[in-house]
Design a binder for these strands. Structure first.
Lengths: 237, 237
DNA sequence: ACATAAATATACAGGACTGTATATTTAACT
DNA sequence: AGTTAAATATACAGTCCTGTATATTTATGT
């Protein structure tokens, strides 16, 4: 038996004239959920997005399914369709959020004000190592997604190009020739993508030991000792 | 209506005593299809595998579905179950084939006999650039697969470790210190993975222009001019 | 306390896919 | 020419998933 009950639904006979009043959030997806919840509320828009991001990271786009989302949030699928129009809707939001320039910790690390031309590299390596604001898993998941879907591919390409361009500028600041700055930017960035694409299991301690050698090899400059100390600071970068 | 016909199947009443004689190929998956085909033959085992590899490359593991395979091969799904036990079966075969050491062109490039210690690097770079025996798309697809499935993850890790170890040995041949050989091996390999993980659109000509700079940066040695000529040779490496 | 609307729950219809059982086709061998 | 078995086709049962329509619950404001 495919369905549990086959008895006719009385609602179908005495049906209301009008139903399905449009949820304003659906058409204004950027509107945040108000602080005071009203009615029979169990989830927020942000929770759905967070869970979707979680499913994306752990199983790829194909794993972001409405029934899994609702199961994990312990509500029925009906809840999903209150906040979002269809499956594609939440995928679009995830993508837009990730590819937004101002949400890119790596780009921000490179673009800040610099006391010395090596500063952007210090910040860049620090963020990669600490994995606080930067999530390599999300980055990797987006990249995987882009492999087979056009929209995601374009977003990933844009993000990558922005970062590589920022790296190239940073290498120019170290007085490398234009050609070498370009190649070094790509080697540094490609290396990092590859590093996370393979899942290298290393403790943070191990990575800090390798750091000076990597830094020297990838930038051509020695990493000053005092920079290493920054990694133990307790900020949220 | 869920199914087109609901009339009882007469075959169910006058059913044969025995059916479903096990296909010997199913239990001996490595057996090749014989040259002379018998009976109502339209596809070979190899064709199914090739199409599965194609679907894997173009849509990921989740895209390798029996009904899509059979649709593309223009036969019914019944054909699939003659050659393979279930969906997992063909996935296992794809994985085993790819992760087989002797099918790895990159590893073979590094492990051959060398006139000079730079030889393995020449061969390595040549194979990457030419993309004849080495398929970066398949490699990338396997890596994506490994991100979410344990068996594939283990296979990918094994392949990666073998290649990085071979690169490390090659760098030791260039008289780098053990620590630097290790880091250089990883930078070279991670870079390559990252390069293909992003889909950088470049013509073969562009890549050949960059090659000397990449080579110098990644190995620490100049690329001799005569090596570039090899890339125009018409062998199948 | 009560009406309102936000959020959730339920029922339904249907597509895509898997796997099993059985029937059918067809080339090769005798 | 008839037999055989390799390969394919078909029917069926069932799971997972989407999306729509409608009913139900419930905290909040009045």
């Amino acid at each position: 038996m495919l369905y549990k009950t086959m008895k006719p639904n009385p609602a179908k006979i005495n049906s209301q004239k009008k139903a399905n009043i449009k949820n304003p959030n659906k058409t204004t997806p950027n509107k945040t959920t108000p602080n005071k919840t009203r009615g029979n509320t169990k989830t927020s828009r942000a929770q759905w997005l967070a869970e979707a991001r979680n499913l994306l990271i752990h199983g790829g786009v194909e794993n972001v399914k409405i029934d899994r989302l609702s199961k994990n949030l312990k509500v029925s699928r009906g809840g999903y369709y209150w906040f979002f129009q269809n499956r594609q809707h939440i995928l679009d939001l995830l993508l837009a959020d990730w590819s937004d320039e101002k949400n890119d910790p790596l780009l921000n690390a490179l673009n800040g004000q610099n006391a010395t031309p090596l500063e952007p590299f210090f910040r860049f390596f620090t963020r990669l190592l600490r994995e606080r604001s930067y999530s390599p898993k999300l980055d990797s998941a987006m990249r995987d997604w882009g492999r087979h879907y056009k929209d995601a591919a374009e977003a990933v390409e844009q993000v990558d190009n922005r970062r590589i361009e920022a790296l190239r500028i940073a290498f120019l600041g170290l007085d490398y020739s234009p050609a070498e700055a370009f190649i070094r930017a790509r080697i540094l960035y490609f290396h990092q993508i590859g590093y996370y694409s393979m899942k290298v299991i290393e403790t943070e301690t191990q990575r800090q030991q390798y750091l000076p050698i990597y830094f020297k090899q990838l930038t051509g400059f020695d990493l000053p000792d005092e920079i290493l100390d920054r990694l133990y600071e307790n900020d949220t970068n």
